[in-house]
Design a binder for these strands. Structure first.
Length: 366
DNA sequence: CACTCGTGGCA
DNA sequence: TTGCCAAGAGT
């Protein structure tokens, strides 16, 4: 790791901000510095690319123009607006934060990163982003871009996968950030990280800050940032039961904790929970699921094995293989079942994860 | 601290 | 097909 003197820091700030003034992106959430707008965009942008976020942001702002609108909305409506973005706890935490602002803060945003971190769903990165962009506090906003950009500029070889490495980057960037324009400085680093200083195919030769990029000057910029690998997704096998009761679809609302919390799917049963032999036949699966429905839900299901390849859906840490069953449920009460029945048009209004859309499309149900 | 929590794009 | 990456936070 190298260090910069005061003159180099000033030179870097000027070069970066001049470039940002000329080439910075015009994004929907950059039309003003309203903390609500900054907040919503930063939450959406967590682990999500800009081009994916733009249409979601525009729809979200029409539906929920203020913190109060967000706080008052039915959760199902929020989840529907978030449908397809992933990491659904983000939007549920946003509503908790909105209510927290109204009740504990009299509707007024705290203006420092230290206070913003106390709010639900706002961690060190988002606190720094809001504080610097909306309130002009000279604090770093350390995200993946900042890790990548500064690790290359200064040849920092600490493992960015380790939580303690954040403190090192916060310390370093705090010495370099512009105190006159901290929000623009942080956003310029992000624009740099998504244009010239990308992870795989950087274009440093044309970068406005290439003369500051020590890793590039040494010819080893792809060695940065240093990051340990994550384990690959664990395989999990499910049965999806696409069943109707009186021509209405049987859907279940997932638990309020864990994966895809509070989203709607058809009943998904881990095959491991069915107590089958390793070499079970399709008819064994059908019988086991019918038995499971009777025992767990008090529902009389008549199921059919759906031919063809199963649906494959990969999450960050799980790879699901999903075998479909069609079926019909006898008319009865749903007291022991965590769900309801819906017509097709009703079904389409439910907030559902992508994996559920994939299951319906795969088995061409209607 | 290590693990959990989605989805789309790309080589 | 696989692996990795993309404006992270909660537990």
């Amino acid at each position: 790791m190298i260090e910069w003197d005061a003159a180099t820091i000033k030179d870097f700030q000027t070069t970066l901000l001049d470039w940002f003034d000329q080439e910075g992106r015009d994004l929907p959430w950059r039309h003003d510095h309203e903390p609500y707008h900054v907040w919503v965009s930063e939450i959406m942008l967590q682990q999500t690319q800009v081009q994916t976020v733009i249409p979601y942001y525009q729809r979200f702002m029409k539906l929920f123009p203020t913190v109060a609108d967000l706080a008052a909305a039915p959760e199902s409506q929020l989840l529907k607006a978030w449908e397809g973005l992933g990491y659904y706890s983000r939007v549920r935490n946003m509503q908790r934060c909105a209510k927290q602002l109204l009740t504990d803060y009299d509707g007024q945003w705290p203006q420092t990163a230290a206070e913003l971190t106390e709010l639900i769903g706002i961690g060190p990165y988002t606190a720094g982003a809001i504080a610097s962009i909306a309130f002009n506090e000279p604090v770093p906003a350390v995200d993946g871009n900042a890790y990548r950009v500064f690790s290359r500029l200064l040849k920092i070889d600490a493992d960015i996968a380790k939580p303690q490495t954040r403190a090192l980057f916060e310390h370093v960037i705090s010495q370099i950030i512009s105190h006159e324009r901290p929000g623009d400085f942080n956003q310029a680093i992000m624009d740099l990280g998504s244009s010239y200083m990308t992870a795989r195919q950087p274009d440093t030769a044309h970068s406005p800050v290439k003369r500051f990029n020590q890793a590039y000057l040494d010819g080893d910029e792809l060695a940065y940032p240093v990051k340990t690998k994550k384990p690959r997704p664990k395989p999990v096998a499910y049965v999806a039961v696409l069943a109707k009761m009186q021509d209405r679809w049987l859907m279940t609302k997932r638990p309020s904790n864990g994966m895809l919390a509070n989203l709607w799917t058809v009943p998904l049963i881990p095959i491991a929970d069915l107590g089958l032999d390793d070499d079970y036949q399709p008819t064994d699966l059908v019988t086991a699921v019918e038995t499971y429905f009777k025992r767990e839900y008090q529902l009389q299901l008549t199921a059919q094995y759906l031919a063809g390849r199963p649906v494959i859906h990969t999450f960050t840490h799980q790879k699901w293989t999903i075998q479909g069953l069609g079926g019909q449920v006898m008319l009865s009460d749903l007291a022991y079942f965590a769900g309801q029945t819906f017509s097709l048009s009703e079904r389409q209004r439910l907030p559902m994860p992508k994996v559920q859309e994939k299951i319906f499309a795969h088995y061409e149900t209607d």
